[in-house]
Design a protein around this nucleic acid. Structure first.
Length: 481
RNA sequence: GGUGCUGUAGACAAAAUGGUAAAGUCACCUGCCUUUCACGUAGGGGUUUGCGGGUUCGAGUCCCGUCAGCACUGCCA
């Protein structure tokens, strides 16, 4: 039997981290068993679904490297299949028309709550007489279709993550709606639980791997599988991703769409790596940096955790930095350009690639996210400098002025400056002024970059020199002393 | 209210059939490197396994009770 799994997001928002993590697990499982990973867009909620979200989901999955083998399939293009299934259930007497209005249902639930009872549908229209039906219809009511769920029925399945799960029919909320009320003909749009089951049957899905917030749906869906005479797949419910407060991560938590992570400068490999760790532990391994392909070799459902996983920015940052630091400057600089441009700097790699690459090589170790490059190189990518109060204060110190003056003198005589030349100049100045080398170094750093901390001084100096900015900056520094 | 799930250091978590001082990673602290920061590197501290009982020579691992957190409870998915 070929393993067939799927990710089935609804296009009612951008690709969410939770959906993406579920996609990762499904992808990993498919790859591990040499199976198929299918993408299905669940757009039956036409009011909330939008095509741009579908695009966002597709591009997000592709960006993460979660390529799908089949699809995308769209539920809105499969309406006939759902109608057929609904008709079958109706014909078999397993489903019926319910004429309750939303208001009636609300009221019913209110009353139940007031009495301390669990809110549920009381199956009141399950056995309507023909006359009653006609009367309700005469009122102009449009029926929904409900699927019968017997209270005393118990649903049992062997969950690949949680083990044996037992669910009582009576705890499922009464007969469930599987199709909305239609404004005209037979029945309206099919609802999630029905559509999912029909699709999973048609697409031969063998393993349904999804978040644990779907557990109750699974019980309902198993009943539908049975009613439709189909084989029930294996279910696996993965733990939820939690925010800092321990609640299910939601849009309310700010950065939760894959798009956001991308913009912040996380690498897809790093994000995927981290998501893999959220709820799964590789067997006998202490190494936590790995590619999706490597994870796929070891991935299986039996090592998926049951407890929810808190999302930890610090760990994601660390993983991202590991990937960043491993990259070559040639590759990295390409990824960095958009961030510089976004910050308003002009970058032309065609004409000035060497310089930008050198700059990249110098600051790479201090980057955690791509966007950090703006802050890290701010002092080097423009001709002008701003001097921090700390730097100005330092430069007021005795001896700094002389150091800077001498350095200006030295570079005025040089055309090309190499690392060795820079070091020589520093040495000469140190000697001739009889000061400590540290003073010279710090004077230069302050005068050249306007700050007391930053990347390698000599390298920074060379880069500035290549742009012809070093002398001007030092002169400006002098004017502040 | 009901149903279900979960509970090992700040975070992620590992610990066949119960058996030595409860892995590892991140974070944190310290030294080294860099006459800066970061990176890197070498170390270090922290949990007695939600809590309370019980079984046992011995329990994170079994039993009972208790508390807490979360999820679900839609003509959303």
């Amino acid at each position: 039997m070929t393993v067939r799994v799927r990710i089935a997001p609804s296009p009612t928002g951008n690709l969410h981290i939770g959906t993406a993590r579920t996609a990762v697990f499904n992808w990993l499982y498919a790859r591990h068993y040499n199976g198929k990973f299918i993408l299905r867009i669940e757009d039956t909620d036409e009011a909330r679904s939008r095509p741009e979200y579908t695009e966002n989901i597709k591009s997000g999955l592709a960006w993460l490297g979660l390529t799908w083998d089949e699809g995308p399939f769209f539920q809105t293009q499969r309406l006939d299949q759902y109608q057929q299934a609904i008709q079958t259930l109706l014909d078999r007497g397993l489903a019926y028309l319910c004429y309750c209005t939303p208001e009636e249902l609300d009221q019913m639930r209110e009353e139940q709550k007031a009495k301390g009872l669990a809110p549920r549908y009381d199956n009141r229209h399950r056995n309507l007489t023909a006359e009653a039906k006609a009367a309700l219809e005469a009122e102009g009511r449009k029926p929904v279709i409900r699927f019968k769920i017997d209270d005393d029925r118990s649903v049992v399945w062997q969950d690949a993550v949680r083990g044996r799960v037992v669910w009582q029919g009576g705890d499922l909320g009464g007969d469930m709606v599987i199709a909305r009320a239609g404004d005209t003909s037979a029945f309206g749009q099919p609802l999630y639980n029905l559509a999912v089951v029909v699709d999973d049957i048609d697409m031969d899905i063998t393993h349904v791997i999804r978040g644990e917030d779907h557990i109750a749906n699974t019980a309902k869906q198993i009943l539908l599988y049975e009613a439709l005479g189909a084989k029930v797949p294996v279910f696996a419910h993965t733990p939820l991703i939690l925010n800092q407060e321990g609640r299910k991560l939601s849009k309310r938590d700010g950065v939760t769409s894959i798009n956001d992570f991308r913009k912040l400068g996380f690498l897809p490999e790093a994000l995927a790596n981290y998501m893999t760790l959220l709820g799964w532990t590789p067997p006998d391994s202490t190494e936590e940096i790995f590619t999706l392909a490597e994870a796929a070799e070891k991935f299986d459902l039996d090592r998926v955790n049951k407890a929810g996983a808190k999302f930890d920015w610090a760990k994601l940052d660390w993983i991202n930095s590991q990937y960043l630091h491993k990259m070559s400057a040639q590759d990295l600089v390409e990824l960095l350009v958009p961030y510089w441009e976004e910050a308003g700097y002009e970058v032309n790699l065609d004409s000035d690639r060497y310089w930008w690459e050198s700059l990249t090589a110098m600051v790479a170790p201090s980057l955690t996210r791509l966007v950090d490059v703006v802050k890290e190189t701010r002092l080097l990518v423009a001709e002008s400098v701003e001097y921090t109060p700390e730097a100005v204060e330092f430069m007021q110190q005795k001896g700094v002025k002389e150091v800077i003056e001498q350095v200006i003198g030295a570079i005025s005589e040089t055309t090309s400056l190499e690392a060795a030349d820079g070091k020589a100049i520093i040495k000469d100045v140190t000697k001739s002024l009889k000061v400590k080398k540290g003073l010279v170094m710090r004077s230069l750093r302050a005068g050249l970059t306007g700050e007391m901390h930053g990347p390698d001084l000599i390298q920074s100096w060379l880069l500035l020199h290549q742009k012809g900015w070093d002398k001007g900056r030092l002169e400006k520094a002098l004017s502040l002393i």
